[in-house]
Amino acid sequence: MTIINRQGMHARPAMQIVEISNRFKSGIKIRKGSMVVDAKSIMQVMTLEAVQGTVLVFEAEGADAGEALNALAQVVAEKFQED
């Protein structure tokens, strides 16, 4: 997924990612190049430095993995209700 909102995935978007991820039982990871972080850790998500245009790979493992990825894809596509 590409981060398309202007300010990138700064504090508030990161918070949304974490909130959504925490709703699911699956383990969720976000990969940026060689960097992998836990999507349930706000500090880790913020340190991704995902500015506008960054390509992120979301990986979920568990019973509700599909739902989790759908929810995350939606919030990224909606530009975190910003812009």
């Binding site: 504090a11 508030r12 990161a14 918070m15 974490v18 909130e19 836990d38 349930k40 850790s41 706000i42 500090m43 880790q44």
Partner: peptide, 16 residues
Amino acid sequence: GAIFDVHQSILNSAPL
């Protein structure tokens, strides 16, 4: 005000 939501969510973050 939303800034403090971020602070709160950092403090509540289980991994942290």
